[in-house]
Amino acid sequence: MRRLTRDRILSIALITPSAVAILVFVYGFIGFTGFASLTHWDTLFPDYTFVGLRNYAKLFTIERFQLDLRNTVTFTVFFLLACLSVGFGLAVLIDQRIKGEGLFRSIFLFPMAISFVVTGVVWRWLLAPGTEQTGSYGVNLLFEQAGLGFLRNGWYTAPIIWHISSESTLGILLQSIGLGFLASPKFGISWPMVSVVIAATWQMSGYTMAMYLAGLRGIPDELREAARVDGATEFQIYRYIIVPLLTPITLSAVIILGHISLKIFDLVVAMTGSGPGFSTDVPAFYMFDTTFRGNHFAEGAGIAIIILLVVAVLIIPYLIYSARTEVQQ
């Protein structure tokens, strides 16, 4: 055992307050939420009768919750794809040593400084479709004026769910192999969610750009020049050298954006609410509704735990990966 030196006492003393605070206010409350989700707490006044996993079993039978899970998957997939591609594209463009680089960098990064609530309200107005009687608004009006009237659509007000029809060839095929349940709107893509994705991408792609730009600047010019000497085209340089070297950046971006999208609440509430037929409802909003409006505290805690687990599925492999690479270094 090492002697307790003054430095050691100091370092322990420095860490203790925040460690205690995190232990209580993060892990303590996670633990309490987990406990609450196993109880029969169904009124404002707590009732800690233990009921096991009954709340979870009930949750998965509720249609609104099933649709929420569908919407979260839709949102996360589209949001990640859009942010990564737009962010990477912007970063590559800015990396071309253009004039006024600092200005463009700031312009693209600024949306991130705005609260999701503001973004939500602004995009709610921009994407408000208007009707035959009122004429088009916002983006629809823009389409109309630009002669692109065929692009007009109901945005987040049109309850369109793209899904495999059970009468289609694919649907019949799925049924024959016992996967017929996939051919239902519950496993579809909700079009109103795409409007939310547009708003979220507008806000977060600048941030992704900043990450990629930092990565691009870290790649030594010698590598590109060596590739050029070897006769590689610009596309090949990106495909075989730049993109693979940026993998750690992409991974960090996926983690950061992924946990935002899985927990998204404020943007959806400000922009669309639950949407037509819960087409933009998300688990976090349902948790709020269930807990504080419906008074089902135990069920609400159950939803919270499910969100936590889903995020953990994304984060934990990353933590393991980064711990390993640290050891290697």
Binding site: R124, P129, G130, T134, G154, T157, A158, T272, G275, P276
Partner: peptide, 21 residues
Amino acid sequence: NTDHSALTWSEGAQYLVDGKG
């Protein structure tokens, strides 16, 4: 009105005020 999910009740009532609903 087809855009009802974008409107609150009072934004809907605005149609009445405007003579469109």
